[in-house]
Design a protein around this nucleic acid. Structure first.
Length: 492
RNA sequence: GGCGCAUUCGUCUAGAGGCCCAGGACACGGCCCUCUCAAGGCCGAGACACGGGUUCGAAUCCCGUAUGCGCUACCA
């Protein structure tokens, strides 16, 4: 179609009005995946034409979120490219140039009505009759226009929609869709402040930037006929359009709040990142909301596998409810796929945030103990803390398994102390063998012995596997904590 | 109100006329494994929104209804 020489040129075009939302991340991902698979380009463009909604810090949040996810852009802010600038507020002269063309060709016209007047006319005419509305504003007498111009009123430029017939558009996900032209109101292309609206800026930029495939939210589907009219008026070829469905809240009923993520329903990439999700897991999860392979039976993908398998032609039209359970599961799967020292590195920031001054090398020995026990990075803290700091004193009740008396526990602790004190080598396998031998010799259930030791060493009922933990703790600390437990059970 | 989109287990989905009395996954329940917790294995329960057509035959095609959602801004 457009630009046959380019296999794929896609773009994600967020507005700097908030944080990076997972819906934008999904659009970026689908674009990026297609570009990487087809050998095309993924472009980042900033649509900052609404000065009133600009939010400080938003741009950084979006860019850093995309980078963290690994969705690097080939053209855009910071990296440049042949069709820049990639920030719309820096492209004003370009829009004005094309507005002049549309004005000259009669596809667009200036209006001197204020927004308030337009609102009033709209209300008077009624929502259901765009044609009458269009005619009304197109028919301001020239004298009136001149009068307002003289008074300093800046015009807005509107696009002149056809009154008859229908515009037939094609959405790659849904197929052909027909819109009666009389149902569309003339849209504003250029605001009186000289800034273009999305309807105009996005079409001009997509055309100039040689975009072949436009991925955007379904909320744009109703404006598609308008957009193809604008593109045709500009004399350009129409790119392929894919309108991505909405995300629904986990109940599957309401739509996800667009602008604010709660702790219950996090929807911003930085929130998920702070919660301990891996970028590759997040991408895997997001990719699956609205897309699946023909077989439909694969859920776990590495990034290279995703690039391989992804196909824009298989994106679904129905909205998808966000499933945090699945995100958690997928994250666990990806955590388990990590090389242990890679996991150790990723854990460091979370341990440090919890107040543990550790290094990747420092926690590396413990990582294999917890790797299959955590579904997100933050969970590691509770499993590892007792290795780095003496835990609060264990509860005597938890130290004493059912059917055992404190005196018996003391006796087992003493025996274990003796077993461990001279054990060589002090590694997990030897420790296990020694402790099991001891349990058998003394006639205590292994499970009871291990429970006693687990609580004595970690002060927890749930902790990493005992033998490996003892090895990591080291002989000195292990014996010290056994002594402490002893002291608790038999006060001097 | 107008215009448009969507509708398969609770959720994400496979299914593009017979392969489907509908397959996979998460979650859920049970069992197994087991030093706790996990991970893993096995088993189970669970869906084609409704009504008409078309067809020898429909989850798949058509129409209608219902429900949900979007747009209807000089916001994107």
């Amino acid at each position: 179609m457009t630009n046959a020489s380019n296999p794929f040129r896609g773009r994600v075009a967020p507005s700097p009005t908030g944080f990076l939302h997972i819906a934008v991340a999904r659009a970026a991902l689908y674009n990026w995946l297609s570009a990487r698979k087809l050998g095309g380009q993924f472009i980042l463009r900033i649509e900052d034409t609404d000065r009133a909604r600009y939010v400080e810090g938003s741009l950084d949040n979006i860019k850093s979120g995309l980078r963290w996810l690994g969705l690097d852009w080939d053209e855009g802010p910071d990296v440049g490219g042949p069709y820049g600038p990639y920030v719309q507020s820096e492209r004003l002269p370009i829009y004005h140039e094309y507005i002049q063309k549309l004005l000259a060709s009669g596809h667009a016209y200036e209006t001197y009505y204020s927004k308030e007047e337009l609102d009033a006319i709209r209300e008077e005419v009624g929502e259901a009759d765009p044609v009458t509305f269009n005619r009304r504003i197109q028919s301001m007498p020239e004298e009136e226009k001149a009068r307002r111009r003289a008074a300093g009123v800046k015009p807005a430029v509107l696009f002149k929609m056809p009154e008859d017939g229908e515009t037939v558009v094609y959405d790659e996900i849904r197929g052909e869709i027909r819109f009666p032209n009389k149902s569309l109101r003339d849209p504003v292309l250029l605001k009186s402040d000289g800034f273009p609206t999305y309807h105009f800026a996005a079409m001009v930029d997509d055309g100039l930037m040689k975009i072949t495939d436009v991925l955007r939210g379904v909320e744009w589907l109703p404006s598609l006929p308008l957009h193809v009219q604008v593109i045709q008026a500009l004399g350009w070829e129409t790119p392929r359009f894919y309108h991505l469905s909405l995300f629904l809240d986990p109940s599957g009923k309401g739509k996800m709040s667009k602008r604010k993520g709660s702790n219950e329903y996090p929807i911003f990439v930085h929130q998920l990142r702070e919660m301990g999700y891996l970028p590759e897991a997040l991408l895997n999860w997001i990719a699956l909301m609205g897309w699946a392979e023909a077989s439909g039976d694969r859920e776990v993908y590495t990034i290279p596998e995703l690039i391989q398998a992804f196909d824009l032609g298989r994106v679904r039209a129905a909205p998808a409810a966000v499933d945090y359970d699945k995100a958690e599961w997928l994250n666990g799967v990806h955590i388990r796929m990590l090389a242990p020292d890679d996991l150790a590195r990723r854990l460091v920031p979370f341990m440090q945030a919890a107040g543990f001054d550790v290094t990747a090398e420092g926690i590396a020995p413990m990582v294999p103990l917890i790797q299959e026990r955590i579904a997100n990075l933050t969970e590691a803290v509770d499993l590892l803390d007792f290795f780095f700091v003496t835990p609060p004193a264990p509860d005597p009740a938890e130290l004493t398994p059912k059917k055992l008396t404190p005196a018996e526990v003391v006796s087992e602790l003493l025996a274990a102390r003796e077993t461990l004190a001279g054990l060589e080598p002090f590694d997990a396998a030897s420790i296990e063998a020694a402790l099991r031998g001891m349990a058998q010799a003394r006639g205590i259930k292994p499970g009871d012995l291990f429970t006693i030791l687990r609580v004595a060493l970690s002060s927890k009922r749930v902790a990493p596997p005992l033998f490996g933990a003892i090895a990591c703790l080291g002989r000195t600390t292990t014996l010290a904590r056994i002594d402490r437990a002893l002291g608790i059970l038999q006060p001097a």
